[in-house]
Amino acid sequence: MSHSHLFLKSAFVKAPIQNGLGRYVCQLQRITVKFCKEHSDSKGARDFIENHVIDFAKKNPGIVVYLKPRRHRAPHIKLEYLNGETEILGIKCMSEHEVAQWLEVARGSSGQPVARLRKLQHTDHPSIQGVWTPWTNVPPQANVETFPSEAYRAPQREQSATERLQEIFRRQQQEQQQQQQAEPA
C-alpha cells in the first residue's frame, strides 16, 4: 500500500454548489504569466504567448489573462480561482505545448487544494472482492476482437406474440383482397 497519502491534508469533498446545473461557471478567474524577455528558461512561456495566448483568451472569455515581463526571474504562472485560492505554477524550461496543457488542466480544476478524500463511513473489515465494473467477467478474447463481430452478435430472438398477431392479420387482409378481386370476374 502506498504511503504517499500521509503528506496530504485530509478533507471531505468540497465542490462548487450546483456548478453546471443551470450553467457551468469556470472556477479559474485570472491568469498572470510572469516571464523574462531574454532568459532561455522563459522560451516556452514566450512561445506560448506569441502563438497560443490569443486563442486561449478567445476560447475562454471569462478568464482574464495578464502578461508581466520580469527581468532575470524564473517564469511562472499565477492562477487565481473564484473561491479565493491562488496557485503558483512554475514553468521553467517548459515547452509552449506543456504550458498550454497545464493551463487546460488549471482551467478545468476547481481551485481546491489537493487533499486525501475522507469518507463518512468506516468498516473494520474492508471488502477484498474489489470494485465491480461492466468488464469484470468479460472473456479476455474480447480485448483483441475486431468489432462488429459474429462471435459477439446478439442472438436472434423469437417472434413476439404481438408480431405473430400482426402477421396473421396481414395474411387475412391479403386473402380478403384476393377473394374480392376474384369475385367480380
Rank of each mutant, 00 (worst) to 15 (best):
S2H: 04
H3Q: 13
S4Q: 12
L6E: 06
L8N: 11
S10N: 10
S10L: 05
F12C: 10
K14M: 05
K14V: 08
A15I: 03
I17T: 09
N19F: 03
N19D: 06
N19W: 00
G20Y: 00
L21E: 12
L21M: 15
G22L: 11
G22M: 13
G22Q: 13
G22F: 14
R23Q: 15
Y24F: 11
Y24G: 02
Y24M: 04
V25Q: 10
Q27E: 06
L28E: 05
Q29R: 14
R30D: 04
I31M: 04
T32M: 11
V33D: 00
K34E: 06
F35V: 01
C36M: 00
E38W: 07
D41S: 14
D41L: 11
K43C: 09
K43E: 13
G44D: 00
A45K: 01
R46H: 01
R46P: 02
F48I: 00
E50S: 15
N51F: 11
H52T: 04
V53M: 05
I54P: 02
D55L: 14
F56G: 03
F56T: 06
N60V: 03
P61F: 08
P61G: 08
P61N: 07
G62W: 06
I63M: 11
V64Q: 12
V64C: 12
V65T: 03
Y66F: 13
L67C: 05
P69N: 04
H72R: 14
R73F: 09
A74M: 08
P75D: 00
H76C: 12
K78L: 13
L79C: 01
E80I: 00
Y81A: 04
L82E: 06
E85V: 12
I88F: 01
I88Y: 01
L89S: 05
L89E: 03
L89T: 03
I91Q: 01
C93M: 12
C93W: 15
C93V: 04
H97N: 11
E98M: 12
V99T: 04
A100W: 03
W102P: 02
L103P: 04
L103T: 02
L103K: 02
A106P: 02
A106Y: 00
A106F: 01
R107D: 08
S110G: 02
G111A: 01
Q112G: 02
Q112R: 05
V114G: 01
V114Y: 08
A115T: 10
R116G: 12
L117C: 10
R118E: 13
K119V: 09
K119Y: 12
Q121C: 05
Q121K: 10
H122N: 03
H122Q: 08
H122M: 05
H122T: 07
T123E: 06
I128T: 14
Q129D: 15
T133L: 10
T133A: 01
W135L: 08
W135N: 07
W135A: 10
V138D: 14
A142L: 09
V144A: 15
E145R: 08
T146H: 13
S149D: 05
S149A: 06
E150V: 08
P155Q: 09
Q156A: 15
Q156L: 14
E158K: 12
E158D: 15
Q159R: 11
S160Y: 01
T162L: 14
E163Q: 12
R164Y: 09
L165P: 00
Q166D: 04
E167H: 07
E167D: 12
I168P: 02
R170T: 07
R170N: 12
Q173M: 10
Q173I: 06
Q174G: 05
Q180N: 08
Q181H: 09
P184I: 15
P184R: 11
A185P: 07
